[in-house]
């Protein structure tokens, strides 16, 4: 049986070879869905270590991106043995880069960390219109919306998206977090979001606080 503590530490260390070897060996034993779920949980705990090291300035954004890639490789390996288990999600989030902006790195980091933390993540992609956010919220009824933007211009479309949610009567049903280079407390207030962040790990903590 796989040593879950060793796996968690390997994820925290971003030791790609060790992680893949352990998980491949584990899958080869034809494990039960429940055991596979434990492996996923161990990886999630490893991602929490990554988040902590990021906050301590030992890891930086490049490391978070690499961590996201490692995690999705791991989940892909586990998928065949996980299929029999219904996974319990801690909450759901709709994310997207706002209209006029094509940058998706920050959004993708946040998305993979949120997924790793057990959220159901609906990613609308880039250059997302206010209408597209509204439609998705109607469809999947998430608890949280995450809007991302890098350009200084991103603040206006964020404001427009909140306005559109208000007009559709959906604003009070969701929490809204904004992320990206131009956001700060003043911008957050002006946009009408509930929280802002320039740091994916911190943003995730905010979201976790909301679904507790």
């Amino acid at each position: 049986m796989i040593d879950l503590q060793v796996l968690t530490q390997a994820v925290g260390d971003l030791d790609e070879k060790a992680i893949l070897t352990m998980v491949k060996d584990f899958v080869a034993t034809n494990p039960s869905g429940e055991d596979a779920q434990k492996v996923v949980f161990a990886c999630q705990q490893g991602m929490a270590i990554v988040g902590d090291l990021f906050e301590k300035n030992e890891y930086y954004v490049g490391d978070l991106i690499f961590a996201g890639e490692l995690l999705s490789q791991t989940i892909d390996l586990l998928k065949p043995v996980l299929s029999s288990v219904v996974t319990q999600k801690v909450g759901s989030i709709v994310i997207g880069t706002v209209e006029g902006d094509l940058h998706d790195i920050g959004k993708n980091i946040f998305g993979s960390m949120a997924e790793a933390a057990g959220f159901e993540v609906y990613d609308l992609g880039i250059d997302v219109s206010p209408g597209a956010f509204v439609e998705k919220v109607k469809e999947v009824k998430p608890q949280i919306i995450g809007m991302s933007g890098v350009l200084t211009l991103a603040i206006d479309p964020m404001k427009n998206t909140v306005k559109a949610l208000n007009e559709a009567g959906l604003r009070d049903s969701v929490k809204i977090i904004i992320g990206g280079n131009p956001v700060n407390a003043d911008a957050c207030k002006q946009i009408g979001a509930d929280a802002f962040t320039t740091n994916a790990a911190e943003g995730l903590k905010t979201c976790q606080g909301w679904v507790k």
């Binding site: 902006d101 094509l102 998706d104 211009l153």
Partner: peptide
């Protein structure tokens, strides 16, 4: 390098 819906030239990944 592509133009976004609002007319800004940008660099996607």
């Amino acid at each position: 390098i592509v133009m976004s819906s609002s007319g800004f030239m940008q660099h996607p990944e």
